[in-house]
Simulated scan of single mutants.
Amino acid sequence: MPTYTMREAQALLGISRATAARLIAAGIVKPARGARREYLFTFRDMVMLRTAHSLRAANIPSRRIVRALARLQASRGDGQPLSGVRVSAVGNQVAVREGGLQWQAESGQLLMDFGPREERREATVAPLPLPPQPAAHAVAAGHFETARGLEARGPAAAAAAEAAYRQAIAAFPGYLDAYLNLGCLLCDAGRYADAAALYRAALAHLPGEALIHFNLAVALEDGGHPREALAGYERCIALLPDFADAHFNAARLYQELGNARGAIRHFNQYRKLQPRS
């Protein structure tokens, strides 16, 4: 089954990372985690993300979108696809049309008519194309897969894996996963300064990637630079306020640095973001 990274979802759908994070936090979208902790979205996840983005573009408040999609998802069950469903913004409400039935998404109330067509803005759930693969990205992807295969062989192939990851980045400087994998490889080898330098280079091409800021902070922390690491965690949180791990790590560092207020603030936010059983 094909999967999409956060970066591919943003490029393909135009959705903001903040909107995606809200859907993940609400349990509406449940991506898997890759080997490097990156989100991996299924086709079903992408359908929900695109629907949310279309509604947000129609000026529906984010909280209303989350409530409406949660109810729609619950009404259909986990195994039911959303193909053929039309989700529309009617004023500041979310309405659903399927077959001959029309209803308000949040309340479930049946509607007799959507009103004039120009008053509604529809987000139709339809098949999604695969992410675009420009030539440079395709070359980089080949180096990336080679690097992953070498890395799987263990420490003896680490140098060759590093070289292949760097070839992937040289071919396509915006290759997020190559930076993440190589950075983790360097950190595993205790090369924290090299990992930090790599992540700083990545930010020249991907300044808005919260995960790069997070991994840079981890490398700085492990390398013995807690104050710089704390600044990195804060930049990560500014980009993605629902990043629970960043709040937890920031709280620890505030505590270690003697700032009880900062520690409490981030610990409280971390607890709020934990999924409830």
Rank of each mutant, 00 (worst) to 15 (best):
M1Q: 10
M1I: 10
P2M: 13
T3I: 15
T3R: 14
Y4V: 12
T5H: 11
R7D: 14
A9D: 06
A11S: 14
A11R: 15
L13N: 09
A20V: 09
A20M: 12
R22W: 05
I24N: 01
A25V: 09
V29L: 10
K30I: 10
P31N: 06
A35G: 08
R36P: 00
L40M: 08
R44A: 14
R50T: 03
R56K: 15
I60T: 10
R63L: 15
R63I: 14
L69V: 10
A70R: 15
A70M: 13
L72Q: 08
L72N: 03
A74F: 14
S75K: 15
Q80F: 13
G84R: 11
R86L: 14
V90S: 14
Q93T: 12
V94R: 02
E98K: 09
G99W: 11
L101Y: 06
E106P: 01
S107L: 08
R117E: 14
R117G: 11
E118L: 07
E118G: 01
E122C: 05
P127I: 04
P127W: 04
L128A: 03
P129R: 07
P129S: 02
P131T: 02
Q133K: 08
P134E: 01
A135C: 00
A140C: 03
A141N: 11
G142Q: 10
F144D: 00
A152F: 00
A160R: 07
A161L: 03
A163Q: 12
Y165C: 10
R166Q: 15
Q167Y: 05
A168E: 08
I169L: 13
I169C: 05
A170E: 15
F172Q: 07
G174M: 12
L180E: 10
C184D: 13
L185R: 06
L185H: 12
D188V: 02
R191N: 00
D194V: 06
D194W: 09
L198N: 11
A202Y: 09
L203K: 07
E209L: 03
L211W: 08
L211M: 12
I212S: 04
H213F: 05
H213K: 03
A217Y: 04
A217I: 09
G223C: 06
G223F: 05
G224F: 03
H225C: 09
R235N: 06
L240D: 02
F243P: 01
A246S: 06
F248H: 11
R252F: 00
R252S: 01
R252M: 04
Y254C: 11
L257V: 05
L257E: 04
L257A: 02
G262F: 11
A263T: 03
I264C: 08
I264S: 12
R265H: 14
Q269D: 09
Y270T: 03
K272I: 12
R276A: 13
S277I: 07
